[in-house]
Design a protein around this nucleic acid. Structure first.
Length: 205
DNA sequence: GGGCTGATTTGCT
DNA sequence: GCAAATCAGCCCG
């Protein structure tokens, strides 16, 4: 698959982001995520909702790091963690209410070679396994070149956006698995994680 | 497949 | 100081 001009793709409209966070998390499965022409199909997401959600960054109040979560819906919340990794979220809910959907994994479609270089796949033990490109929130940000520079950017922009998937690129019909979120110390109970059943790019089965 | 652990930096208490 | 919405290597089975 060569890199197609992003122009041909229909961006998800601003209204899409007015839906409840978990509705968005579920509906994003199978949609396209594109950053500078590189991207693929979303196969795993998680919702983080408000100051009452103990796993949400907003739980401990508004800070410079997390303030993008209070933005109007439909922009990117990108943050750095564990000293290594960037994470990409889509801001949801009304302005002044902190909530977002974390994009945890995609299936690569556009720009495979660029992803392999950015991920430096050859340094890994499994040098040729493309499942290592985007099967996790930190991995997909590295593969797509997403960093804090994009924090707060509108998803109506041409650099970073979500789009409807043209039929020829669509996943086969799939079941959605609803389960608990990954990597948390608090708020593990809420089943706010969604993934495409059986997809090889899902981070944890 | 799953569990354990070190890496490495930032932002907040 | 320290915890963190992770990753990758190693060990085990």
């Amino acid at each position: 698959m060569t890199i197609e001009p992003a122009l041909a793709l229909a961006k998800l409209p601003p209204e899409f982001y007015l839906q409840p966070t978990l509705e968005i998390a579920r509906q994003l499965l199978g949609k396209l995520l594109i950053c500078d022409g590189v991207g693929g199909l979303i196969v795993e997401t998680e919702g983080y909702i408000g100051q009452e959600d103990p796993a949400c960054h907003a739980y401990t109040g508004r800070t410079r790091r997390n303030e993008t979560m209070w933005n109007a819906p439909g922009c990117a919340y990108v943050y750095f963690t564990y000293g290594h990794h960037w994470m990409l979220n889509v801001v949801t809910e009304r302005e002044d209410y902190p909530a977002a959907t974390l994009i945890r994994a995609i299936q690569p479609v556009f720009g495979l070679e660029e992803m392999r270089e950015r991920r430096n796949l050859l340094r890994l033990k499994s040098k040729t396994d493309d499942r290592n490109l985007t099967s996790g929130p930190g991995k997909l940000c590295q593969a797509l070149g997403i960093t804090g520079e994009l924090n707060g950017i509108s998803l109506q922009s041409d650099r970073l956006f979500l789009a409807e998937t043209p039929p020829e690129l669509a996943l086969p019909p799939f079941e959605v698995v609803e389960t608990t979120r990954i990597g948390l110390t608090r708020g593990k109970e809420s089943p706010w994680r969604y993934y495409v059943k059986g997809n090889p790019y899902v981070s944890v089965k």
